[in-house]
C-alpha cells in the first residue's frame, strides 16, 4: 500500500466518528520506481490531507516533504513534484499495521495488503 491510498483511507468501525488518519506501524517498507506524471500530481494535490501525508511519509522513512505553507503554486516546482511523487506513489508499506486513531484497533498489513475486514460487532 502506498501513501496515496493511506491518505484516502479511514477506519469505519461502528461508533468511530473520525477514523482518519490511520496511524502507521511499519515493519517493512519497499520502494518501487514509477514514472512521474505531473498532470496526475496536480490533479490529486487538492485532495491530499497534507499534514497526515507528511507524518506518514516520515514514518516510512522519508522526511523531505515541506511541512508548512504548502500552496498550489508549489506544483510549478519540479523539485517539489519529484518529492511529492516519490512519497505518494513509490514508497510501499509492505508489512506492518494500520491503527484506528480512536479505538486503537489494528488492521494488519501483509504482502502490502491491509486487511480492513471488520468483525461482526464492529459493523
Amino acid at each position: 500500500m502506498r501513501l496515496l491510498t493511506h491518505n484516502m483511507l479511514s477506519s469505519t468501525i461502528k461508533g468511530v466518528s473520525n477514523g482518519f488518519p490511520l496511524t502507521i506501524e511499519a515493519a517493512k517498507v519497499v520502494e518501487k520506481q514509477v514514472d512521474m506524471n505531473s498532470d496526475f500530481l496536480k490533479n490529486i494535490f487538492s485532495k491530499i490531507e497534507w499534514k497526515p501525508f507528511v507524518e506518514a511519509a516520515k514514518t516510512l522513512g522519508f522526511s523531505e516533504l515541506p511541512e508548512e505553507d504548502v500552496q498550489p503554486s508549489l506544483l510549478d516546482s519540479h523539485e517539489f513534484l519529484t518529492k511529492f511523487h516519490h512519497a505518494l506513489l513509490e514508497i510501499h508499506l509492505e508489512e506492518g499495521a494500520l491503527v484506528c486513531p480512536e479505538t486503537g484497533r489494528k488492521f494488519p498489513v501483509n504482502k502490502g495488503i491491509p486487511n480492513m475486514l471488520l468483525l461482526e460487532d464492529e459493523v
Partner: peptide, 19 residues
C-alpha cells in the same frame, strides 16, 4: 500497479469523502 485492500464492500467502503 494499483493498491490492494482486503475488504468486504458490504461492510461499507472506508474512504474519505469526495476523494
Amino acid at each position: 500497479e494499483g493498491d490492494l485492500l482486503l475488504a468486504d464492500m458490504g461492510q461499507g467502503l472506508g474512504f474519505r469523502a469526495g476523494v
